[in-house]
């Protein structure tokens, strides 16, 4: 698609907004539709769009294999560790109210939810990207 200037330009313009939107969706989960998963998918989709328009090679320059590999489990790790923090704070696993060092139960709960939404978003976007890169890759790579 080397010569498709329109697509490239439009994509280049749109991708930051898509990413911004995805962050909005992740953060907005408590207030409206959306959340970590949906936001993560959109974030992943933005990377996919980039790779499709500019080529996989180019895409891998932006998101290296190592980076996407690293983020695959990171989100899950954040999620699971938040649960462990709740145990350390004296609660049950994933009992956000008991997150240590926060004090206010509702606040702790909300922060907990935010934390896990971010975790979900990270893992989902990284995995979606990985899936696309691995599947779209030519056999001779």
């Amino acid at each position: 698609m080397a010569e498709h200037v329109i697509i490239k330009t439009v994509s280049r313009l749109m991708i930051p907004f898509i990413q911004l939107f995805s962050l909005y969706v992740i953060a907005h989960g408590e207030l409206g539709p959306g959340g970590g998963f949906q936001g993560g998918v959109i974030l992943g989709a933005s990377f996919i769009l980039y790779a499709m328009v500019f080529g996989l090679e180019e895409g891998r320059k932006r998101i290296s294999r190592k980076a996407s590999d690293f983020f695959n489990p990171t989100g899950l790790f954040i999620y699971a560790v938040i649960g462990i923090f709740c145990i350390l704070g004296g609660g049950r696993y994933l009992e956000y109210d008991r997150l240590p060092l926060i004090g206010n139960e509702i606040l702790a709960s909300q922060l907990g939810i935010y934390g896990i939404e971010i975790g979900v978003g990270i893992t989902v976007s990284a995995v979606m990207t990985t899936l696309f890169f691995e599947m779209a890759r030519r056999d001779d790579d």
Binding site: R92, Y93, L94
Partner: peptide, 11 residues
């Protein structure tokens, strides 16, 4: 020793 154990996730 004590019978059924129940664990409430997230409390």
């Amino acid at each position: 020793a004590t019978g059924r154990i129940s664990y409430w996730l997230g409390g």
